[in-house]
Simulated assay, not measured.
Amino acid sequence: MSMWHKNLTRRGAVTMAAAVAVALAAAGCGDGGSTPLPGKAGGEKVDQSVYDAAPVASDAEIPAGSTMDAIRKRGYLTVGGSLDAPLLSQQNPVSGQIEGFDADMAKLLAKYIIGKPEVKTVTIGTQTREAMLQAKSVDAVFQTYTITPQRATQVAFAGPYLTSGLAVAVRKDETGIKSVKDLAGKTVIVGANTPAVTALPTAAPGSKQVAFATDPQAVQALLQKRGDAYVQDFTLLASGAKANPGMKVVGEPFTTEAYGIGLNREDAQFKEFVNNWLRKIQADGTWGKVWKSTLGSVVEGDAPTPPAIGSVEGS
């Protein structure tokens, strides 16, 4: 499980047992296009022009009898994912749309295969992902799925398509801290027993740590000026900044956790197809536009360089 998922559970998200029950019931949510409403409920809006300009695979790239051919004939992509992950994959309670980086990436893959961004999302728990892929209950999993060699013995990973890791958040009006290098000698808020506790002494020599048991407590401590910065997993900080306009994320993660698109391990053809699609949307700027409109909406600076395909053991 990724750090983000562990912390999301602590923040009072839907319990894992409920997620598994929903998954086993295969409750799907249709989700074509991307027209989220303004507000804090979901991700930021990805402009329709991004979908209009997104690539579509040629007939030659979709051989008869392939997984891609079956998806195209079906008319939608079935994705294992989440409905409660802000800026990644969260269902807007007003519009019903599923919004965020993972959700929009899934829609773009559907557009590439089918010609339109038709996705049905099945909510699954982290412990059921491998079984769902092996049973072909879903075509792919977009769920901050950390690539590991052990998991790669059970499923295939396309990508990595996103990297996370420890990052730095500060108050909105802070201008003197741009990255972890600026934390030397500062008072830094951390989550108790998180990787930040051991990583900071090397990354920011002389920094003083103030630990809090939960993420909400740490965020409030930052806003109350009980520390100069808060170091935590990037995706969790982005979620916190979405809900708390008084904070922002600065710089890029200074440790690395690579996320992959989970696929059936026996389908090497589909993995190659998805990797080729990723290379295309990285090269034409689509990936960067989606990042800026979702995770990047609470981060200062330009979109990061996308991770190199196949660059992580297990991918």
Rank of each mutant, 00 (worst) to 15 (best):
Q91G: 09
A135E: 15
R74Q: 02
E130K: 06
A70I: 01
G96W: 01
A156Q: 05
V119L: 02
F142L: 05
D139P: 11
Q154M: 13
A110K: 00
A64T: 15
M68V: 09
K73N: 08
V138E: 07
P63S: 09
R74Y: 00
G100S: 03
I113E: 00
V119H: 00
S95R: 01
P63E: 10
L109Y: 03
V170R: 11
E130F: 08
G96F: 05
A60L: 11
G81T: 12
S164N: 13
K111I: 04
Y145Q: 09
Q90W: 01
D102T: 02
S164A: 15
A70E: 11
P55W: 07
V138K: 06
R171G: 04
A70S: 10
D139T: 07
K178R: 14
K111D: 08
T78W: 10
K178N: 13
A106I: 02
G100Y: 00
Y145R: 10
T146K: 03
A53K: 14
L77G: 04
D59Q: 11
T153K: 15
I98A: 05
V94R: 14
Q154H: 15
D104G: 04
K172H: 08
A156R: 02
Q134G: 12
V50S: 06
Q150Y: 08
K116L: 07
G165Y: 01
A110S: 03
T67P: 03
E61R: 13
L88M: 07
P63H: 13
G159T: 10
D173E: 14
K107G: 11
L83I: 15
F157Q: 00
M105C: 06
I62L: 02
V79G: 07
G159E: 04
E99D: 12
G65D: 07
A54S: 04
P93S: 00
T153G: 13
L87I: 01
V122F: 10
A53F: 03
T146C: 05
